[in-house]
């Protein structure tokens, strides 16, 4: 065993530990998450009785409080109305995507023109990138295949695309721009 090629793990632990100091505990670390958990709790129980609202509110506070050290930096939704508008657009796109996909699967498969497309990213938060990749996978003709944060692009596979440039523009305008506006300003 050569000690130079196998550095002591203790000496590596120093800078990593100092980069993420333990934050002081807050009473409501993730307000959006708490609201979301209450809603999920009520849906799980399929009831809106006062007892379940109380229990859900307690769990919605307790679990984020206990696990707050493990959560990454919370994101704030800056424009709630835009979220609703975007949800409607995505819902519509999912239905359209499925009908288009059905037509392509049942149609002449050998005439499809698949392609890989690199979309340069303007957003840089992990959560927004994950959200964008998920939305892209659910909507017309594209599946996200790889993400490279260093050079800042998202690799998509398109089932059928005639003009890759137009596809990149569509993704950026329709999904990335609103996400940027909602979360990062």
């Amino acid at each position: 065993m050569n000690p130079d090629s196998n550095p002591n793990p203790v000496s590596n632990a120093g800078p990593i530990a100092s980069e993420s100091p333990l934050k002081p505990r807050r009473w409501f670390p993730h307000k959006t998450l708490s609201v979301y958990m209450v809603i999920v709790w009520l849906l799980l129980n399929n009831s809106i009785s006062p007892g379940h609202i109380l229990l859900g509110a307690f769990l919605g506070w307790l679990i984020p409080w206990l696990t707050q050290a493990f959560w990454p930096e919370a994101l704030h939704i800056r424009k709630p109305l835009l979220v609703i508008k975007m949800a409607v657009i995505i819902f519509y796109d999912i239905i359209v995507a499925n009908l288009i996909l059905a037509a392509r699967i049942l149609g002449p498969v050998n005439k499809l023109q698949p392609a890989f497309v690199k979309v340069p990213l303007d957003i840089d938060h992990d959560f927004t990138i994950a959200l964008l990749a998920s939305i892209i996978s659910l909507t017309p003709g594209t599946v996200s295949a790889d993400v490279n944060k260093e050079s800042g692009y998202l690799l998509l596979h398109c089932l059928h695309v005639v003009d890759p440039e137009a596809e990149i523009r569509l993704v950026k305008e329709r999904y990335e721009a609103p996400l940027k506006e909602i979360f990062e300003c």
Binding site: I94, L101, A102, I105, N110, S137, G141, V143, A145, H157
Partner: peptide, 15 residues
């Protein structure tokens, strides 16, 4: 029906 792996991914991801 779809010829390669990447194209077959589109089925389960959306449908």
């Amino acid at each position: 029906r779809l010829p390669d792996f990447y194209m077959r991914l589109h089925g389960p991801a959306k449908a």
